[in-house]
Design a protein around this nucleic acid. Sequence first.
DNA 1: GCTTGATCTAAACCTCACTTGAGCTTCCAA
DNA 2: TTGGAAGCTCAAGTGAGGTTTAGATCAAGC
Lengths: 156, 156
Amino acid sequence: MHRTDLIMIGELAARTGVAVSAIRFYEAKGLVEALRTRGGQRRFLRADIRRVSFILIAQQLGLSLEEIAAELRRLPAGRTPNAADWTRISTGLRERIDGQIAALERTRKLLGTCIGCGCLSLKKCGLYNPQDKAAQRGAGPRYVLGDRATEIAEVG
Amino acid sequence: MHRTDLIMIGELAARTGVAVSAIRFYEAKGLVEALRTRGGQRRFLRADIRRVSFILIAQQLGLSLEEIAAELRRLPAGRTPNAADWTRISTGLRERIDGQIAALERTRKLLGTCIGCGCLSLKKCGLYNPQDKAAQRGAGPRYVLGDRATEIAEVG
DNA sequence: GCTTGATCTAAACCTCACTTGAGCTTCCAA
DNA sequence: TTGGAAGCTCAAGTGAGGTTTAGATCAAGC
């Protein structure tokens, strides 16, 4: 175990493309952990590059930091994913992607029905159906559709 | 033109499933317009139910309110979409969906390559490629990937 | 005329995922 | 030994898309 097994925050940032401030933020959120030097500086394990990489990939797939944290907490040793963990996790991610694609395809089909009819009649065209969470993953408060859109009346 | 052609904000809210506060917010953003009674209360056209419906559908597809406003401003008469407008707009939306699906399929393929290898080696597996904006449509500051992820090194 | 419920405005607050800034400390190579 | 890059903490700011609250006013039925 060389001294070089520990890396500084700046290197972790450079190797992952994430800002230093973001890594500190992730630590505050419990997504990564750091040792400290006597002087109080963070020292990361080289393996944390992988851990941060995982965070980025999962984020791209639409998981919130909260969800990613939950996923990481489920790791056996409480540590950075190894090959087996990764297989399990990425299989789960793939299911998620499949779901997203299916939702989009449903929406596209509904939209196809609507093109030409120009109705925008909600009951008929069904574009509001709470099942269609299509691009629902968005900024903050998107609960409107899904919480209340159930009792939508027909237009007109 | 009956008096009943005008509806109160509460009815517009009920008919679209949107909160009253959200409708006022949309008005402030220029997405809908309202007449006013002598007493200062808003009165909407019945057709605005359609307009708000459009906002919701477009939102589900991932358009920001800014983009939706732009789309609505392009309407010929500056009014609620009719059948022809809707055809034009929804065709555009469908292209957008196609793009989203394609991005997700690319990501899924990359993930497939990674399952089993467990590498998380960024260069090799390519899950970071800035082209893959997959689920990139997310909360606020997501510029990290795309702005800086270009110079990502391979995981050690 | 009165009461009740709907509406009004303005400003403050919320979440998420971070960034920025101020003011100060540590580390390390020359 | 020293100077400057890199690190530290804590608080506040950002932006999207709204909600909540407070206090006042309006509209309609009895």
